[in-house]
């Protein structure tokens, strides 16, 4: 596969995952704010901005923030920018992906372009939840059903799960870094539920641990659960699988280093114990996960995409 094509596929995966993540954060937080005091809502917005590594340039009112995160084409993290970037990448590899995938992504893009803030403001649930997230899930379903599960598919998956592992680690980090507001048990409860819902993991959590919400269990679930598609461990497994598959096509030992990096991340999550991680400091552990994701990304590029010519002459 051409390196340029791999690059485009990887970023389609990442941008769509990012779109879904941002859309869900907006959806969940707008819903939770209905139950909270204005002060708590303000704190929630600050936290949102930290999650997304983005700082709103102006007076942080809900309307303006939602608009900037959804429709602002000058904000590279807005939904319209992310979907647009995914589509632009797809347009450049149209002969590689299935027609059905292209049509779905195109439809999704046009849907966001046509939407207005007015519509979103009155029916955020309709727009963000049903419109965008379902649209992206449909794209993933179409991808799994119509694209050969070969190298092309693995590049899409690699982008998707590196983005997911990284975003989930940040989410956990921001939540656990704050002093627990024991004074207000109700607000506290909503915060933790909010975290689970931001990962669509609330129902799955309840199935494992009942609705008894405890921070340590949440950390265990979102980090180390082997079966939830939203856990960091699950993402690390998928990253390792896709990298194995991609490296299998290369000659010689070129893929060895990046395979080792992916295997290390996977092993640390496979064999990790939540009590030990908490005792050693969750924040440090999460920082290491983010750093390893970054390393994998850099090495994937050095090995498969933007390698120096001299290293690749056979």
């Amino acid at each position: 596969m051409l390196s340029r094509v791999a690059d485009s596929l990887y970023w389609i995966g990442r941008y769509l995952e990012r779109t879904e993540h941002t859309a869900r954060l907006l959806d969940v937080n707008l819903a939770l704010m209905l139950d909270q005091t204005p002060a708590a809502a303000e704190r929630r917005w600050e936290r949102m901005q930290t999650y997304l590594a983005w700082q709103y340039d102006g007076i942080p009112q809900t309307y303006a923030l939602v608009q900037a995160l959804t429709f602002d084409v000058n904000n590279p993290g807005s939904l319209v920018s992310c979907i647009g970037a995914a589509r632009e990448n797809a347009r450049q590899v149209r002969e590689q992906i299935s027609s059905e995938m292209w049509e779905q992504l195109n439809r999704l893009y046009l849907q966001v372009k046509r939407a207005t803030m007015e519509q979103l403001w009155h029916e955020p649930h309709e727009f963000l939840h049903n419109g965008l997230k379902e649209g992206i899930h449909l794209f993933q379903g179409i991808t799994n059903a119509t694209l050969s599960h070969g190298e092309c598919w693995h590049w899409l998956r690699l982008g998707q799960f590196i983005e997911r592992a990284n975003a989930t680690a940040i989410l956990l980090d921001v939540h656990f870094a704050e002093p627990s507001g024991a004074a207000d048990a109700q607000a506290n409860y909503l915060d933790w539920v909010g975290l689970l819902k931001s990962c669509t993991a609330f129902e799955a959590y309840c199935n494992v641990y009942t609705a008894d919400i405890r921070p340590e269990r949440i950390a265990e679930f979102l980090l180390l659960n082997a079966e939830s598609p939203r856990s960091v461990r699950f993402a690390a497994d998928q990253i390792a699988i896709s990298i194995q598959a991609i490296a299998a096509n290369t000659l010689g030992r070129r893929g060895d280093r990046v395979k080792r990096l992916a295997g290390r991340l996977q092993a640390s999550l496979d064999y990790g114990q939540v009590d030990e991680i908490m005792a050693d400091g969750l924040s440090g552990y999460l920082a290491s996960i983010q750093q390893q994701c970054q390393q994998i990304h850099t090495n994937v590029y050095q090995t498969f995409i933007s390698y120096p010519v001299e290293t690749a002459l056979v």
Binding site: M1, L2, S3, R4, N249, F304, I305, Y307, V309, A312
Partner: peptide
């Protein structure tokens, strides 16, 4: 054009599996 490289008068394309 950016996918192709000429080295010693031979044209290569840059793929994930090498040139």
């Amino acid at each position: 054009g950016r996918d192709l490289i000429v080295h010693d008068n031979v044209v290569y394309m840059r793929t994930t599996a090498g040139l």
